[in-house]
Design a protein around this nucleic acid. Structure first.
Lengths: 116, 116
DNA sequence: TAAACACTGAGCCACATGGTTCAGTATACG
DNA sequence: CGTATACTGAACCATGTGGCTCAGTGTTTA
């Protein structure tokens, strides 16, 4: 099985656990944007938005570059491959434990137990 | 496009952002387990483990049932479909913005700008 | 019935998060 | 040059998190 770097997954999923940050990713998917543009769009102070962008940078989802006084944010090269792989492997576990037959059998077992 | 319930995704990704909780999901993928078993396996107090299980329950990944003095934890019916769908849609955004041609073009643009 | 067991709830601690304000610094523009 | 712009950094606040202990409650078992 693939070895996932725990710290990385921690940071990734934490970064994705906030609606604003998911929104920022979506926005950057359309085009690059400055901190100011992002702050405006999400009705937030520059400082607040900068923090979110920092979290996304730390997770490797976003890279930024400051040119003059403007810091431009863009999607990073990292993508969501690792997270997708992790989730996919667990979807299989779920599927294995929760296919129709399993459910029926488990339900029957429970009923038997109760009837005893 | 699918409408994701933000609160749900928030809770899901937050639940997945901790290595212990991901470990618990993996463990429950093999078989159901009591709080005590989980606490032992992850070298943690009952109370600590109970909190983790609570977070996983809240996210809908785990269900529990108390019989006698033992609370048994099992994978919930929810699975990771929604999270997988979200991640997949963003993988596509990434792919679109980061295929080989895009990269080359963007790199060229940057070089031109610098050369000006 | 007494003792061991599995869990629960309250409460504490240190630290992170999501947001703010305010006072800078550095750049761009008229 | 002076002013407006874009950001940065420190500091603060309320809330949540990840862990703990300790004192119960209810259940099993000897």
């Amino acid at each position: 099985m693939v070895q996932y770097t725990t710290a990385r997954l921690d940071a990734s999923f934490a970064a994705l656990s906030d609606a604003t940050r998911r929104g920022v990713l979506e926005r950057l998917g359309r085009s690059d944007a400055s901190i100011t543009e992002l702050a405006d769009k999400f009705h937030m102070t520059l400082t607040g938005m900068r923090k979110h962008v920092g979290v996304l940078e730390h997770a490797g989802f976003v890279t930024t570059e400051k040119v003059g006084r403007v810091r431009t944010c863009k999607l990073g090269p990292r993508g969501l491959e690792e997270e997708a792989a992790w989730i996919e492997s667990y979807r299989q576990i779920w599927a294995a434990r929760f296919n129709a037959l399993d459910r029926v059998v488990e339900e029957l077992k429970r009923k038997e137990k109760i009837d005893e």
